[in-house]
Computed example of a mutant assay.
Amino acid sequence: DDKTLKLWDLETATEISTLTGHNHWVRGVAIAPDGQKAVSASDDKTLKLWDLETATEISTLTGHNHWVRGVAITPDGQKAVSASADHTLKLWDLHTAKEISTFTGESYIYCCAVSPDGLTIAAGESSGRVHFLRLEGGSENE
């Protein structure tokens, strides 16, 4: 809730760096499969892409109009998915920091995950509904 992310050395349990840039609570973080980048989700309605090697912000992803509560990165590290209280799930291109597509649910979307094969997104709503969306083809199953 201090608006920061902390990078830790797990072997020594010491802090390596503090990432600052959000202006509200940080609610989620996902680390790219190569361990070089991370994406954070915040109540400031943004996501931020971070370079973990240099502990610097690469870009800010904007497009939600309410809290961003969850984030996941695809297994290839090329895209991110964000879940928001604005009832939307957004797919982002991490190279361009641009929104690719938006799915609108019936209530707050609090969490999201990407399947290990990178083809399916799962999203949970506050209503209790869970959506499964195909990244290729755009079909949805509930």
Rank of each mutant, 00 (worst) to 15 (best):
D1I: 00
K3C: 14
T4L: 07
T4N: 05
K6A: 15
L7Q: 13
L7G: 07
D9R: 06
L10S: 01
T12W: 05
T14C: 03
T14A: 11
E15N: 07
E15Q: 15
E15P: 06
S17E: 09
L19V: 04
T20R: 15
T20E: 15
T20H: 00
H22A: 12
H22V: 12
N23E: 14
H24D: 15
W25T: 13
V26A: 07
V26F: 00
G28M: 09
V29W: 05
A30L: 06
A30N: 00
A30S: 11
I31M: 09
P33D: 10
P33M: 08
K37V: 10
A38K: 02
V39N: 03
V39L: 09
D43Q: 13
K45F: 12
T46L: 11
T46C: 05
L47H: 01
D51L: 12
D51T: 04
D51I: 11
L52H: 04
T54A: 15
T56R: 10
T56C: 05
E57M: 10
E57T: 02
I58Q: 04
L61C: 09
T62L: 02
G63D: 10
H64D: 06
H64A: 12
N65T: 14
H66M: 00
V68K: 06
V68L: 04
R69Y: 14
R69I: 05
I73C: 03
I73N: 08
T74R: 02
P75I: 11
D76I: 09
D76A: 10
Q78R: 15
A80I: 02
A80D: 03
V81L: 08
A83M: 09
A83P: 01
A83H: 00
A83W: 04
D86P: 04
D86W: 04
T88G: 02
K90L: 09
D93V: 01
L94V: 12
H95R: 13
T96F: 04
A97T: 06
K98I: 01
I100L: 14
T102G: 08
F103I: 14
G105L: 08
E106I: 12
S107P: 02
S107F: 12
Y108C: 12
I109T: 00
I109V: 15
I109P: 00
Y110E: 15
C111Q: 11
C111M: 06
V114H: 01
V114C: 09
V114R: 07
P116F: 08
G118I: 11
L119M: 13
T120I: 15
I121W: 06
I121L: 13
I121V: 15
A122G: 00
A123T: 12
A123P: 05
G124P: 08
E125Q: 14
S127M: 03
G128S: 08
H131K: 15
F132Y: 11
R134E: 15
E136Q: 14
G137P: 03
G138S: 13
S139P: 02
S139L: 11
E140R: 08
E140C: 05
N141F: 08
E142T: 13
